[in-house]
């Protein structure tokens, strides 16, 4: 589904501050894989996502998504195939537009039979209501509520719905529950798992929560200094302790993400 070969990315190339943020990344993602990615701060996790999504362009290598070479494709064109969620719950939706309008934006993009001047129809509204009901957040009767009035958790759940309302070929989740309180984080994570498995979406998720990494991923990647140092099939009984051990064995140091120790749920 997604094939990344020899991907390299430098920051400040050819200056004294040159940093290699992605060091010859090779990754083969199969259809319906749910891959969780863990690693220290600055390991290159988000940069990898930015290269896949197109917010930054790689310096060399290739990214092939479903037989399309997207390495240097424009970001807004890739977004038709890639759904993306960020840590900041305010980043995924437009606050001064209603829930219905936000969903329509996400929904209409995938429907090529409709032109730029198409409007929201009543059948769209019914569809949105149905989808909102699945979120279990009591939003299905507030289609005309402005998104800015929702809580962070509700907005992140809405962003999730927007990213998946047209099933994407690839879903990128960049610590999308990290800014939420534990209870809301759990709700959003359960929703994510539900939507992803129901629609068989190929998904990459960066997380600092080792429990989540083990619980949801069928593959676990560890990144360090721009490289993938460990690629685990999540079939054996992996525990947090042996994850940390293996990280130490591969890199010779402790996993030092400043938030990992705090998240023990």
């Amino acid at each position: 589904m997604l094939k990344i070969s020899n991907l390299n990315k430098y920051f400040n190339l050819n200056t004294i501050n040159e940093v290699k943020v992605l060091d010859n990344i090779n990754l083969n993602v199969n259809k319906a894989d749910f891959i969780t990615i863990i690693g220290s701060n600055g390991a290159g996790k988000s940069t990898l996502f930015n290269c896949i999504a197109g917010s930054i362009l790689a310096d060399s290598g290739s990214i092939i998504l479903d037989q399309n070479d997207i390495t240097y494709k424009k970001e807004y064109l890739r977004s038709k195939m890639i759904g993306r969620l960020f840590q900041n719950p305010l980043q995924g939706s437009a606050p001064n537009m209603t829930i219905e309008e936000n969903l329509a934006l996400a929904y209409l993009r995938g429907d090529s039979s409709r032109n730029s001047f198409s409007m929201i129809t009543n059948s769209d509204r019914l569809f949105f209501k149905e989808k909102l009901k699945e979120l279990n957040l009591n939003l299905d009767n507030s289609l005309n509520q402005k998104v800015g009035t929702l809580s962070g958790g509700q907005r992140q759940a809405l962003s999730l719905l927007m990213a998946t309302i047209v099933t994407p070929k690839l879903l990128l989740l960049d610590e999308h529950t990290a800014a939420l309180d534990p209870q809301t984080a759990k709700t959003v994570m359960d929703l994510t798992d539900d939507i992803v498995s129901k629609n068989k979406i190929t998904c990459l998720m960066i997380t600092h929560n080792l429990n989540h990494a083990i619980k949801y991923g069928n593959r676990i990647l560890m990144m360090e200094k721009g490289r993938i140092v460990l690629d685990l099939d999540n079939k054996e009984n992996i525990t947090i302790d042996n994850l940390l051990d293996r990280f130490k064995k591969e890199t010779g140091k402790l996993l030092d993400n400043d938030r990992i120790l705090l998240s023990s749920e």
Binding site: S93, A94, M97, E101
Partner: peptide, 28 residues
């Protein structure tokens, strides 16, 4: 009427949340 169309909604989103639009399929 225009602001209710798909293109109109895209224009409104562009001014409302630039971060969102940059990571979306809308050409800002």
């Amino acid at each position: 009427l225009f602001l209710k169309t798909r293109l109109g909604l895209s224009i409104r989103a562009t001014g409302d949340n630039t971060d969102m639009v940059l990571a979306s399929s809308i050409d800002a």
